[in-house]
Design a protein around this nucleic acid. Structure first.
Lengths: 164, 164
DNA sequence: TGATTGCAGACAATAAATATCCATAATAGT
DNA sequence: ACTATTATGGATATTTATTGTCTGCAATCA
């Protein structure tokens, strides 16, 4: 089974930060990396994935950087997950049911998908459905109500200093 | 994010095969490996995980091998997944929210878990709930009704030959 | 023009999954 | 008692995936 790598966590945090950014402002990959304490060049790779998926908009040059490509309530967590993880399934069926003594049996006898893969994929659909129902706007809302004003203030001030 | 690897698929298939085994019979790691066309020594590692989790019962010696440790309707797919994957979460929160400009802020300001991790973990719970609701008996039932009699017969004959 | 930034590809380092090997112990049959 | 079979656990090797860096290039702004 495949587990989520760090790039996904970073991308999600970046997306939420960008969702809270004032209209017209941008944050560079370097700033986002510093904010989260992660390697800048590598984070840039994750941000590129988000840009390719048209989740964020990028601009080169001084005053360049990233902002959301659409409204925060139009971007689900699943969108970000699929962008970073490439939309690959958690469980990959290798059809091992057809090997061994069964490998001489014609393919037509295996028309239906493997019952085990079915179960894993149904569970994966439930997972995706949960991720699809939550938007960046939802998370931003929760952050505003749940995070201490102290932390909120420090981050806001730091972001303001970055975007001048 | 982490994806499900081969050991899990192999373990699930082995568990379902063992669920369909006649009472009192066993299959060795070597037989199960041959049936699924996978490396015997490595499959043995996966079977050991199932044995340690008390999902299967093992016996050494000639006529030894594996059988289910309890009734097939008492073993969920989640049981097998957790046994093989060690119960580790798909998404691991590294608390990157506390880094950068926030690292000087006291831990008490971060009492609640990260909102992003919350979303990922809720989705993971939905995934686990789906896996928990399906038992090996359920899969065995579906296999009997969905798989062609041809395949069913070949496998049955092959297993009979192994268990003598 | 020079500084800043994103982009894409190549490359290197590290971690994880995959796979094998060995020594040991238990069991069944002879 | 002896042999063949099988599971166990640890050590180790191999392969693959992830993580991370570097370079050259294009776009933007002052």
């Amino acid at each position: 089974m495949k587990r989520h790598g760090n790039q996904l966590e970073w991308a999600l945090h970046c997306a939420v930060v960008l969702a809270g950014l004032d209209a017209g402002k941008r944050l560079s990959a370097g700033s986002l990396a510093e904010l989260h304490g992660v390697p800048p060049k590598y984070l840039a790779k994750a941000l590129q994935l988000l840009a390719n998926a048209e989740i964020v908009n990028s601009a080169p040059g001084p005053k360049g950087g990233y902002c959301l490509a659409k409204s925060a309530d139009e971007i689900s967590v699943l969108d970000v997950v699929d962008a970073v993880e490439g939309g690959e399934p958690l469980f990959r069926c290798q059809e091992i049911r057809r090997r061994g003594p069964c490998q001489s049996i014609g393919a037509k006898h295996f028309a239906k998908s493997c019952q085990i893969a079915d179960v894993m994929w149904r569970a994966e659909e439930a997972w995706r459905a949960e991720l699809a129902r939550v938007t960046l706007a939802d998370i931003g809302q929760r952050v505003l109500t749940e995070v201490s004003v102290k932390v909120l203030g420090v981050v806001q001030d730091w972001v303001d200093a970055q975007t001048t």
